[in-house]
Structures are given as C-alpha cells and as structure tokens.
Deep mutational scan, measured.
Amino acid sequence: RPLSCPNHEGKTMEFYCEACETAMCGECRAGEHREHGTVLLRDV
C-alpha cells in the first residue's frame, strides 16, 4: 500500500532523499529537497 506524505495531503511518497535518508512525495522533492540526490522509493 502506498505511503501518504505527512506534509502534503493526498500525495503519495514515491521518492527517497539520499541526503536526508527519508521518503518524500513529488512536492517535497520539488521543494525543500530540490538540491538533494533522490531516487525512486521502489529502487531503495
């Protein structure tokens, strides 16, 4: 079952931030994590 983002209601966490070692949604990735290296969560 997909994980919901606690910061963006209705968004699914699909990415993993390698710098912060945390899962995130597309909005997180485009925002606070935009300078960080990210991979698809399913690839982690």
Rank of each mutant, 00 (worst) to 15 (best):
R1P: 00
R1K: 00
P2L: 15
P2Y: 15
P2R: 15
L3N: 06
S4Q: 03
S4D: 13
S4V: 01
S4I: 11
C5F: 02
C5L: 00
C5R: 00
C5A: 00
P6T: 11
P6Q: 12
P6L: 06
N7E: 11
N7Y: 08
N7H: 02
H8I: 15
H8G: 02
H8D: 03
H8Y: 02
G10V: 03
G10D: 12
G10W: 06
G10S: 09
K11C: 08
K11V: 08
T12R: 07
T12H: 02
T12F: 11
T12K: 14
M13E: 08
M13H: 06
M13F: 13
E14S: 07
E14I: 04
E14V: 07
E14M: 06
E14F: 04
F15A: 02
Y16I: 11
Y16S: 03
Y16E: 04
C17I: 00
C17S: 01
C17F: 01
E18K: 12
E18T: 12
E18V: 10
A19C: 08
A19D: 11
C20W: 00
E21G: 06
E21A: 08
E21S: 09
T22H: 10
T22V: 11
A23H: 14
M24D: 01
M24Y: 03
M24C: 15
M24T: 06
C25T: 03
C25R: 02
G26F: 10
G26Y: 10
E27G: 08
E27T: 08
C28G: 03
C28L: 01
C28S: 01
C28E: 03
C28P: 02
C28Y: 00
R29D: 10
R29L: 10
R29W: 04
A30P: 04
G31T: 11
G31W: 03
E32T: 15
E32F: 07
E32Y: 06
E32R: 09
H33T: 04
H33A: 05
H33M: 01
H33C: 06
R34E: 13
R34G: 14
R34V: 11
H36Y: 00
G37Q: 13
G37N: 14
T38A: 13
T38F: 12
T38D: 13
T38C: 10
V39K: 14
V39T: 14
V39R: 12
V39N: 15
V39Y: 11
L40A: 12
L40K: 10
L40T: 11
L41W: 08
R42H: 14
D43Y: 00
V44E: 10
V44R: 11
